[in-house]
Every structure is written in C-alpha cells, then in structure tokens.
Design a protein around this nucleic acid. Structure first.
Lengths: 206, 206
DNA sequence: ACCTGAACACCGTTCAAGT
DNA sequence: ACCTGAACACCGTTCAAGT
C-alpha cells in the first residue's frame, strides 16, 4: 500500500483509540490499536515513541477536560470545581488509571494544570508550604476517589469476611450507588475546611 | 531433576519473591520469579493459578501488616492506627500499587481487615450509612497517599509548566521530604474530625 | 504431589524497504 | 514523510512426561 496523500495517523488519534479500547475492553495493546485504525503496528511508531507515550497522551486527553482555573472566583469554589472535574475525568475512564499511575507524569497539559492551581492559591494568600500541602491533599483525594469509582476496594455485598449481622447492618445502608459520590463530596468539604484553616494561620508576610 | 523430598515452592514464597522483585526492579514477570527461585516457569503453576493470583497474594502480604483493630481503644485512635499502617504498608512497596489497583480484591486477609474495621465502627455507634461513608473516605485517603509516596503526581522541582516566580515561591517551601507525610497526616486529622461529626449526627436508634 | 521441557499465542520494539 | 513486512527478544499459560 502506497503512502496516502494525507497522513491517516496522528498522536492524538492513536491515544484516543487506545483510550477507547481501555473503556470498552479494560485494556489496550499496541497491536490492538493498530488493528482498530486499520494500519500496521510499525506505523504507530512514526507518531509515538512507544507504549508509554500513548499512556502519557491519554493523560493529556483527561487533563484537557479539567475545569480551567477561574481567576475571578473565590478560591474555595475554584478549588472545588477543579477537584470535581479532576475526579470525574479519571472516574469516567477507570481502566486507564492503572497504566497512568504506573508512570511518571510528563504530559505538559497535566503539569500546567497543577501550575495553574498553585498560582491561584498563591494569589489567594496561601504561602509556599500551604500550597504544597493543599495540592498534595487534593491530589490524594481525587485520585483515591477516582480509583474507588473504577474498582471499589470493598465488596459491600457478599463479602465473606464480613459476618452476617454486620452484613445485614450494612444492607440497611441507604447509600447504594451514591456511596462513592457522597464519600468524595464529604472528603472534599472536609479538605476545603482544612485549607481555610491553613489560610487563616498564614503569616501576613508571604 | 527428580522431585525434591521436601517441596521447595509455596504460594507465599512465590508471592514474597515477586514483591521483592517489584521493590528492587519496579516490576515482576513470571519467568523472573521462577529464575529467582531457581525453578522452571511451569513449576510455579502448581502453586498459583496465574499471575493475578500472585498479585493477590502480594495484597495479602501487605494487608497482613495492617495494625489489628484494637477493641479496647477509642475509635479515633483505632482508626488512625489502622489508616497509618494501611498507608505505610502500601507506601513501602510503591511498585506493587499499579498491579494491585488493576484487579478486584479477592484476598481474604484484606477483606477481613475491612470487615473488622466496619465492626469496630458499628460498636462505636456509627450507623450503616456512616460506616460505608467512613470506610470509603479512609480508603480514598490511604490509597491516594500511598500512590503519592510512590509516584508523586507533581514534579515540584523543575516543573517546566510552573513559571519561575512560582517556582521560587515553592522553592521557599520548607516541607521537603515531609511533604507526603504531612499531607497524609493533615488529611487524616480532617477525616477523623468529619467522622466525629458523622457520629454526633447519628440517630440514637441504630 | 511436584518439577520439567517444549509448545502456543501473544506482546512491544526495531529496521530495512517501499513510495 | 509515512506506511509496510519481517524479525527479535520477550511474556503468560498449558500440557504431556518424568519421578
């Protein structure tokens, strides 16, 4: 087959296809991506350096859906919007999380997101230590919650290790499908309160 | 080579070897485990059903190091001890986290840990919904924090996406190596406060 | 019961060859 | 510049064969 007059492949198309495979089958391999695109495996390597770069491109796709940091908003609302969009973006593609957490972030879109968040916090009066702590806590919260949606740690129903009185007690929990959502929102509210206290304790001079 | 008079392999030995490889090289493959044990690859399959079972055995090794739920302790201290040991156990083996989060928990030791925690909360007066929320939040916190230790999301130094005034501002952060530890502890304190409020709002009748 | 060697269907990556 | 086919060193898993 001759070279097409117009390139049929691109980094983004490859990453999008891989993400699609993750969503539908829970995994992706380089040959599968090639087959999905009707192209030979080696063709992909003209656009991405390897599998790791595809994963990093997926990270970029997700980070591109984070809520932009709005500078005209009070910091609690801005942080909340950012955190929710972060968690939602990852939770919408649970199968992508294991490969993503397995490699260091180099995607510039993602790095810029953290930079923008740090800048917003600084302009809101947070000092260096508080900014570092705030982002650490928010990151823990969002990633933990995203993992929880994709692969809940606890089997709430029919967990053989939970004795039956407890089983029936938990059976009375009314949360159901809202469990992960409610847990995240409560964690977020607590984190925002903690951040407010961090800000209040700030030395005037930063 | 004839069959040894005493079995040289066992499920636990295999899992321990795999965890060791993860710690030292960041990954493990079935052939590598076999080689490390001086045994042929197919021998392993007499003790474990496959790679997934090895990963699940690793989960059991880590869960075995969680602090036992002490029933004579006030719930906040018991929860704190449990959460710290959970986070520490995973953070000590960061390379194990990606394979672990990629598959559903079936390890009985781990399942029993969650069961014991739920039981302790119930005896402390938490209702079904509160227990489910509490465990969800604690799980998010510990897993997020463990991930953070192994593979920090943010490159705090030399992140090209953070402009240089911000870079110097963050350079003034005094946290350093304590960052992850402090972030987790702050998150834990906030979570415990939230749980206390949850308990206070509990209807008398559970 | 427990270990082995050989085989199978895969995987990620490279590279000379085509247009 | 962009796609291809063939090759390479791997991987997880199975299975008949040995003691």
């Amino acid at each position: 087959m001759p070279r097409p007059s117009q390139p049929i492949l691109s980094r983004e198309l490859i990453c999008r296809t891989a993400l699609n495979l993750l969503d539908r089958t829970g995994r992706f391999t380089v040959p599968e991506v090639a087959q999905k695109l009707g192209v030979s495996v080696s063709s992909l390597y003209h656009h991405v350096a390897g599998r790791a770069e595809i994963v990093e491109g997926i990270r970029g796709l997700l980070a591109g859906r984070f809520a932009p940091i709005a500078d005209d908003t009070a910091w609690p609302a801005a942080v909340a919007a950012w955190a929710r969009s972060y968690r939602d973006a990852f939770a919408a593609h649970p199968a992508a999380i294991p490969p993503l957490v397995a490699q260091t972030i180099t995607d510039p879109v993602t790095l810029r997101q953290y930079g923008a968040l740090a800048g917003m916090l600084a302009r809101s009066g947070f000092g260096p230590d508080s900014i570092v702590l705030a982002i650490t806590m928010l990151d823990n919260l969002c990633l933990g919650a995203a993992l929880d949606v994709g692969a809940p740690s606890v089997i709430w129903d029919d967990n053989p290790a939970i004795d039956s009185p407890m089983q029936t007690a938990l059976g009375r929990a009314t949360l159901g499908a809202d469990r992960a959502e409610r847990g995240f929102e409560l964690g977020l509210a607590l984190t925002l309160r903690g951040l407010a206290e961090l800000l209040a304790d700030q030395p005037a001079e930063v």
